[in-house]
Design a protein around this nucleic acid. Structure first.
Lengths: 238, 238
DNA sequence: GGTAGTCATTGGTCAGACCAGTGGGCCCAC
DNA sequence: GTGGGCCCACTGGTCTGACCAATGACTACC
């Protein structure tokens, strides 16, 4: 096992701590250090790497935040077991993916509630607007037209819930998830699924039945997501 | 802007650095520190927090790795731009002139979900923070202290849900419903009800049981509202 | 044989010094 | 008056060495 000193010339672009962290990370990922291996004491390791203990500790912080090592006062530090599974999967998502996931999570929370409240509170004018949008919706539309009507339906529904905050949230989640939703409208089947979902929601709202309206919205979101995910593993539509 | 010293009694379960990092993170995500704000110099900030520069720097490393701050040698550290979604949400919502009823409706929707997600996703550090707040909470506190801890508990719980958008929503609904919530903390009984509710929620989260956590939150919101409305009907100063 | 105390080891924290970019202000030459 | 260049205060980066606190093995005692 070599904790040999780091080549000095390298020390320009990164901080000493980052340099050391990269060095140790390489030792771990390359297999020179295995999960469960005990690292030398900080003072010792710092000396053998020709850095101060402060810089070494900076590196340790970084490695710990990456969950590559575990540190225990009085016991020392060991190379962590490599976590695999859902948690790790979540870690590996890009920032963009995480943001979309967060927005989707919020949408899944808000939209069913909007449907419920719309069923309770929709004014006649709201119902008329919704019906007009549905009348213009069918599977033969272009993807762009279909997406526009999709957005309009959900926005009108939010208005029918008579809570401006929910309208704002609907608008925002719509803009964040637009790219994903666009995928769903690319195919005739996708447009059909979306359209039928809206229809079911509308009927429950018209019948003033909050619970079925919320359930219909949940089903709609689920179905649309399935269609979208089938459509594209490439979330860049331009 | 208060970088006031951290309550000393808390320093048991976590390192000083982690404590400071949590403190600063709360300042940032709660909006007290806005994107682009310049942080005090390390020496200065360490002094005002009563910690060594080494510990302060440990906290800074953590915040930087979370991309909450950016640091530049010779120039200082600034609060990083929030993810676009959070910034947009914050901006759009803070412009609204909000009715309390609408805000309450949103809160009733969001908070139970936050509790559920916290039960699924809370990290150890989240749990420690929550427990610390509970340890400081009891019915004998002043109304102001009690309300502050109430707000802190819900904010920390939102963090534990690991969705920045939910944190922002929690922050906004809190600021809108603050006056109403203040009523509930005026009486000893009100503070007791609030505290017990938080405890029940925390226990469900700690046990990783999402459904009971959500149910406990719903019960908590209901109970607190009853107390507040009783109080609002017959206002009796402390 | 078990138990309580001891102590070396390890990470945690602190204080203070000096190094190394950064940027604004000052001064001089033009 | 203006431009350029130097200087210096300020900020983060790094190092040193000291002491605190948790851990666990070892030891002496019962």
């Amino acid at each position: 096992m070599s904790f040999a000193s780091i080549p000095p010339m390298v020390r320009r672009s990164r901080s000493v701590g980052a340099e050391v962290a990269a060095h140790l990370e390489r030792l771990i990922t390359s297999g020179e250090l295995r999960a469960g291996d005990r690292l030398p004491a900080e003072r010792e390791l710092a000396a053998s790497l020709n850095v101060s203990r402060a810089s070494l500790r900076e590196a340790m912080f970084e490695l710990e935040s990456k969950k590559l090592i575990e540190r225990h006062q009085g016991r020392g530090s060991v190379v962590a077991e490599q976590p695999e599974g859902v948690a790790q999967l979540y870690e590996n998502l890009s920032e963009l993916d995480v943001e979309i996931a967060n927005a989707t999570e919020l949408r899944d929370l808000v939209e069913p509630r909007i449907a419920q409240l719309a069923a309770l509170r929709a004014a006649d004018s709201n119902l008329i607007s919704l019906e007009e949008v549905l009348a213009r919706s069918h599977a033969e539309l272009s993807p762009e037209e279909s997406l526009a009507l999709d957005v309009e339906f959900h926005t009108l529904l939010a208005h029918a819930a008579q809570n401006p905050l929910l309208v704002t949230l609907c608008t925002m989640t719509t803009s964040w998830t637009r790219n994903t939703r666009e995928l769903g409208h690319r195919t005739r089947q996708g447009r059909e699924v979306s359209f039928r979902g809206h229809q079911a929601i509308y009927e429950a709202v018209l019948a003033r039945r909050p619970a079925p309206a919320g359930a219909a919205m949940e089903r709609h979101l689920r179905e649309v997501r399935e269609v979208s995910s089938r459509q594209g593993a490439h979330p860049e539509p331009a």
